[in-house]
Write a protein that binds this DNA or RNA. Structure first.
Lengths: 347, 347
DNA sequence: CTGTTAGCGCCTTCAG
DNA sequence: CTGAAGGCGCTAACAG
């Protein structure tokens, strides 16, 4: 008698019980590639039931050469923006019947590189990627023909696919919005300028000022990390200066949240004393005090597009698929924080 | 000459180049189980280098019976609390040299059950779990001897391991804090009472009132989802009532954020007109306006403990490991929102 | 329509 | 110290 093999049943067990071969079991389970008579199919199904059989995904992966797994690497999942992105991506991948391996690089380049290698060894079918800097080493993947889609921090002259909003245009538009409503002293909390997103949003702000004939004041440009703390500290120095700007563009939502905290500390009312507009616009922007105006990134759409790119490319899984650079349409959402909200002038 | 086999090298290639057998390659890579002479080890290492060989984790998993993978299932990663938890867990698992499969059940029971089954078929080595309700169906895992650690929403009489704070005690303490500082009309935004966390925190609030001889006013108990919107809507009704409470305990951080929004809408100042205290206390609590007082959950510690439980249990991976119910120590962190902050009475 | 069988890439016992 | 060979569970030709 077999020992306590509480272990799982294999398709050999099923075959034995059903009185067929293991191949037929496969045919039934996968609906092919060969036809199976109705009667034996029935017997197999019953056997599966009675034995409590469940296919082993690992063995399937080895035999098929594909794992049904996508990797997702982000600098920090605890950042609400990436968390929201992860949520949407999870949704999109589950529709594609794939499972996702989470990689949190903890803002560390070393860790990021490690994760890429680890995922490559695990033969992921594709990678959804947001890097900690502008020069990720994706070679371990692309070398093996594993498709990659870069999100958010996109290198325009990169060879792998990407999807992101037009950061320059979006930043220009939010700044233009402020200008159109009469603000003339408009500071920016810029993101790290060694990141494309930081650079591009800064550029958008400059373009808007230039177009309006407003001189760019160096003292109203503060570079800060894309974090709440970054926004807080930048805000503190900005608001403590003798001559204070009337409006501020925070380069992402986290910075804007920090800026609101700084404004509160300084006893300034938003938007009455200080108008604030920002970037990203996740649901969190609807629950700050006051609610944040922002250039909104359509995360659900970005996620679906990215997963689509992964799925369509490399059906067999060999050479580099068609690489595409998709630009998602951003959207301006005006709420009370910038003081131009239609419904009520102040919160 | 070999065709464009951009595919990966296998250990057979290495063996051929090194002029040894494949077994020896294994011995070198794994430092065992058999010793290898220094000279051949060197040859093998060189061959590995020259061929660009990397072990295939999937094949290893099939041969070894363990996948080096932990599953993580949460109701919604875009919830900052779970996102922060995921971040810490990722950190802890990477130390354990394991990779994590992310499962976002999107607050759906159906999806949750699906994920559990999918993960079971993928032979995860263990599951870190936060359920959408009190009655998750973990059988597909535990039936196969896969260890599970339940987090946050813990069933005290469950048979699988868990780690969480003492919700009753923590809720009682925050409420006692309010009472000690003279508040007598203290409402609660309770979490869903069909969740243990909702129930327990409600219970803690009751105990504190009872101990202080304060009558429990039914109209000051509002049950709401553990979300920003839940807190917002509960806050609106609570604050619109003719007789308004002087203080409110929000059962989690998300609700508290929503409540702050509601207070702002109603033109109430926090903490001058309304004291607020809450639960969870992630970093986000430091960036609300005003900063939130809270019973803080030590996420890093919880994560480390949970992963430890998974790692220690089932070294071979068969029967149920030692199941343990760990209670993590919470901590009261007083900030401006409840109006008892030592440094400055108001923000 | 069904059964046989050779891998997928790796690990490890068992002989040399 | 090294090699040969069976097996992990499943798939997909290739015969019947």
């Amino acid at each position: 008698m077999t020992p306590v093999r509480s272990s799982r049943a294999t398709r050999a067990d099923v075959a034995r019980v059903a009185g067929t071969s293991t191949a037929v079991v496969s045919y039934v389970i996968n609906n092919g590639p060969r036809p199976v008579s109705e009667s034996t199919r029935h017997r197999v199904l019953e056997a599966i039931e009675s034995v409590g059989y469940e296919p082993d995904t690992i063995a399937q992966a080895l035999a098929l050469g594909v794992t049904g797994t996508y990797g997702l690497i982000v600098p920090d999942v605890s950042n609400p923006f990436f968390a929201a992105l992860a949520h949407e991506l999870q949704d999109a991948t589950s529709e594609a019947e794939r499972v996702v391996l989470l990689g949190d690089s903890a803002e560390s380049k070393v860790r990021e590189t490690e994760l890429i290698k680890t995922f490559a060894r695990r033969r992921i079918d594709g990678l959804l990627f947001v890097g900690v800097d502008n020069t990720p080493d994706l070679a371990p993947l692309s070398g093996k023909g594993i498709p990659v889609v870069v999100l958010d921090r996109v290198d325009p002259r990169n060879t792998v696919s990407s999807v992101a909003v037009d950061n320059v245009a979006a930043a220009r538009e939010v700044t233009e919005h402020l200008i159109a409503h009469g603000y003339t002293t408009i500071a920016i909390i810029a993101g790290p300028l060694n990141l494309f997103t930081g650079q591009d949003r800064y550029e958008g702000w400059r373009q808007a000022l230039a177009a309006a004939g407003i001189e760019e004041e160096p003292r109203w440009v503060t570079e800060a990390p894309f974090s709440r703390r970054g926004g807080l500290e930048a805000g503190r120095t900005l608001l403590a200066a003798p001559e204070r700007p009337r409006a501020v563009f925070a380069s992402n939502e986290q910075q804007a949240v920090g800026l609101l905290t700084a404004a509160a500390e300084a006893g300034l009312r938003v938007p009455e004393d200080l108008a604030v507009i920002s970037f990203d616009g996740t649901d969190a922007s609807e629950y700050t005090v006051p609610k944040l105006s922002a250039a909104v990134q359509p995360l659900a759409e970005i996620a679906r597009t990215a997963v689509g790119l992964l799925t369509s490319g490399t059906p067999g899984g060999n050479a580099n698929p068609t690489t595409a650079h998709v630009v998602s349409a951003h959207e301006l959402r005006i709420r009370p924080s910038c003081g131009t909200h239609p419904s009520k002038p102040s919160v």
